[in-house]
């Protein structure tokens, strides 16, 4: 069907110097972008002597998964030597409730802001936007004190709360913009029919917000997984997320630096967001654009 819209078949070849430059520049920059990933990958598959003697770019002589095994179950973070797998499960435990909570709260706030003219809605929205641009460092100390007083400091609940709070601006913005694009008549008709606040939200608005919820989820999963600062400060020793553990492993390896183990651990940590990115593809870009362009 496309043939009617776009010309099919090859375009007449016009190989100008500009075109040649184009096809030279793009692969070179692609190489620049891919090299670190490639190097991480091959380094993690090499043995230590091979790393020391060979070139950083060379292909590993034998595929050696020792480093990956060590990284996941034996590498040391200071005191314990359980590898990065504890960090992985900690991250999962932080991730699931945080993502769920922040999306739920964001959806409700966005819905309230766009349909119910609550008092102070504009002020709240402006405040959220300001918070979104502030450096986290400003809030950390007051929050640590507050959490310690409330008795949720250094706990799973604490970190989930923090992620929900810091995710609120972006999530609210996403949902608000989505709901604002829906016709107001829809909302009015539902009210005339006697539906209340929650009923309109659950039965009408939520089903229409599935696409934006997917975008929000991708955004939050990557963001929370990659978080380092908040995980470092708010989780306490037992719940350290993967990124913090990774940094500890690399920073604390005593004696000989095991580069292959370091790189394997790095790859393991990068795996989750990378998978999400390559699976979600366009949605990921849409998420960034939706979060950004309308900010």
């Amino acid at each position: 069907m496309n043939a009617t819209v776009q010309p099919s078949g090859r375009r007449p070849a016009r190989l100008t110097t500009g075109r040649i430059g184009l096809y030279a520049f793009l692969p070179i920059s692609a190489l620049f972008f891919l090299t670190p990933l490639y190097v991480m990958m091959v380094t993690s598959l090499k043995t230590m002597p091979e790393i020391r003697s060979g070139s950083i770019l060379s292909w590993p002589s034998a595929h050696n998964l020792d480093a990956w095994v060590r990284a996941s179950s034996q590498a040391c973070t200071g005191l314990s030597c359980n590898g990065i797998q504890t960090g992985f499960w900690n991250s999962v435990r932080i991730l699931v409730p945080s993502v769920a909570a922040s999306i739920a709260v964001g959806a409700v706030t966005g819905y309230t802001l766009s349909f119910w003219r609550a008092r102070g809605a504009k002020t709240l929205f402006a405040a959220l936007m300001i918070v979104a641009f502030m450096p986290y460092q400003v809030f950390i100390y007051p929050l640590v004190r507050l959490f310690a007083m409330a008795g949720v400091g250094n706990s799973l609940l604490g970190i989930v709360l923090v992620h929900t709070i810091f995710g609120l601006p972006t999530m609210t913005l996403l949902f608000r913009n989505h709901f604002a694009a829906l016709p107001m008549e829809l909302f009015k008709a539902a009210r005339v029919d006697g539906a209340g606040f929650w009923r309109i939200f659950l039965q009408i608005m939520l089903p229409m917000a599935v696409p934006i919820a997917v975008v929000a989820m991708i955004l939050q999963v990557t963001g929370i997984w990659n978080d380092f600062l908040l995980g470092l400060v708010f989780t306490g020793c037992r719940n350290l997320p993967m990124t913090v553990q990774l940094n500890n492993i690399v920073a604390s390896s005593q004696g000989e630096r095991l580069y292959n183990v370091d790189m394997a651990a790095t790859m393991l940590t990068a795996l989750v967001p990378l998978c999400i990115y390559f699976i979600s593809g366009r949605w990921f870009v849409r998420g960034i654009a939706a979060g950004a362009v309308k900010g």
Partner: peptide
């Protein structure tokens, strides 16, 4: 496009370590 954008999906910690190695 995916090649150019993939670094953005990774944590600063991850890319920091990768570049430190490079």
């Amino acid at each position: 496009r995916s090649v150019f954008l993939y670094p953005f999906s990774m944590s600063f910690i991850v890319i920091g370590l990768a570049w430190r190695w490079l």
